[in-house]
Each structure stands twice: as structure tokens, then as C-alpha cells.
């Protein structure tokens, strides 16, 4: 994080209120959401958040294997987050690793609370997220795409879930860090929130922030999430125009 040596072009990440990609401190990267992109799946979504690009697909509710994972009174949501080999600067060896395993888990816990799992006892709802290009914010993009894919699949939900991150970079709190800001900044705080009552379902902190800075970050994230939810709704309804 903050200890990383910066190459010349990122010496100053904020110049006169403008970030290295031209954004203001409270601006999200350009967001695109498409629905129904993987026909084989029950539901699917494609999300672009700046240069980060992800595909998400939902299969189910269906039978759950192995049987020892079955829950008698509700469905099990299983999430698999993977980064494709060519999604990063230096090719990543395909297959799960500790990082992708942890992210799969926090994304699962971000989405589970809004799903009416009790309507499908003993069954499995499977969400697969493949990151085809990673430029910071992949877990937030995964939550955005996963939420839309679940709604597209007809899974009963209390509402949607959106996510974005904020962090401290060169003394400023910035919304939706891009890769250089994430790599050379001081902290990164991704947060997922429910659409209906803005409750927090994903939260991680990397780096050092004071309580006041965290509160400031949450205000930015709230605004970001409100915008993201409106885009998610637009994408879901767009199928039916």
C-alpha cells in the first residue's frame, strides 16, 4: 500500500483537485451494466467500472452437491470469484488462490442477507464471477454484477446490493480508487450497502484511517452506492422496454 515506490507519472496522484484519470475526488469511474449476457445461465450481468470488467452468472436454485453442505431449512448461496489469467499486468496462474477464496466469501456474505433463502430449502444458488480485466475495485464490481445477476435470474430478494470503495490518498479521501490510487495510496475501504435501508453487508479496511476519515469515506460511498443502484435498476428494467 503506502510503502510502495511510485513511478514518476504517479508522483502526485491529485493535482488541483483532479485525479490522475481526470476525476474529481467524489466521482465514480464510468459505470456500464448489461443484463442477460450469458444465455446458458438463469441470470447474468456484465459490469464495467472504469477499466475493471466483470461477468457474473447465476445458476439455480438447483440441487446441491456435495450433500454434506445441504441446509435443511434454506438454500445455500455459493459464490466463486476468479480472476482470468490475462486480467492483470503480469499473467496470473489460473485457479483459486487465498485472495480469490477470501473475496468469494466476503461477496457471498454481502449478498446473502438480502436473499429469501428460506424459500428454497436444501437447494443451491450458485453465483460465478469472472474478472476479465482488473483495475482495482474488483470485489465491488463483483457485488454490483452479482446482485444484478441474481435479480435477473428471478431469485426473490429484499432488494439489491451495491458496492464501492473509498480511500485515503495523499491526504484526501477519494471515491472509487483506480489501480494507481489503490497501489500507492494509504488506505482502501470497500463497502457494500442494501438498496432499501442502506445497511452495510460488506466492509473491509486496508491501511490506516482515523474514525473521522472513515465517516467521511462512508458519506462518499453512500452517494456512490445510490448512483450505482439507479444504474442497476435501469439495467434490469431495460430488458423490458
Amino acid at each position: 500500500m503506502s510503502g510502495a515506490k511510485r513511478p514518476k507519472e504517479y508522483e502526485k496522484l491529485i493535482v488541483k483537485g483532479k485525479r490522475c484519470d481526470g476525476r474529481k475526488i467524489d466521482e465514480l469511474r464510468p459505470l456500464t451494466i448489461k443484463v442477460g449476457v450469458i444465455k446458458r445461465a438463469n441470470g447474468s450481468a456484465y459490469v464495467e467500472l472504469g477499466k475493471t470488467k466483470v461477468y457474473a452468472a447465476v445458476y439455480g436454485p438447483k440441487e446441491l452437491h456435495p450433500r454434506r453442505l445441504v441446509e435443511d431449512d434454506k438454500a445455500v448461496l455459493s459464490v466463486k470469484y476468479s480472476m482470468l489469467a490475462f486480467s492483470v499486468n503480469d499473467r496470473a496462474r489460473p485457479g483459486p488462490n487465498r485472495r480469490s477464496t477470501e473475496i468469494s466469501k466476503v461477496v457471498k456474505h454481502a449478498l446473502e442477507p438480502v436473499i429469501f433463502l428460506e424459500e428454497f430449502p436444501q437447494l443451491n444458488i450458485e453465483l460465478i464471477v469472472d474478472i476479465i480485466q482488473a483495475d482495482a475495485g474488483t470485489r465491488t464490481a463483483a457485488v454490483i454484477a452479482g446482485s444484478v445477476a441474481l435479480a435477473n435470474a428471478g431469485i426473490p430478494m429484499k432488494g439489491l446490493v451495491s458496492a464501492c470503495a473509498a480511500g485515503k490518498v495523499d491526504g484526501e479521501i477519494l471515491l472509487d480508487l483506480n489501480a494507481p490510487e489503490d497501489n500507492f495510496g494509504d488506505s482502501d475501504l470497500p463497502i457494500a450497502m442494501t438498496s432499501t435501508d442502506k445497511k452495510i453487508t460488506l466492509m473491509q479496511l486496508d491501511g490506516v484511517m482515523t474514525k473521522a476519515e472513515i465517516q467521511k469515506a462512508i458519506i462518499l460511498i453512500r452517494k456512490g452506492n445510490d448512483y450505482i443502484i439507479s444504474k442497476q435498476i435501469e439495467a434490469l428494467k431495460g430488458v423490458y422496454q
Binding site: L160, T196, L236, Y240
Partner: peptide, 9 residues
């Protein structure tokens, strides 16, 4: 025809 999504009030 009104289309709604999860969480729409």
C-alpha cells in the same frame, strides 16, 4: 405495464 425490481417500494 409496470416493471419492478427487488426492493422497489
Amino acid at each position: 405495464t409496470v416493471i419492478v425490481v427487488p426492493g422497489d417500494l
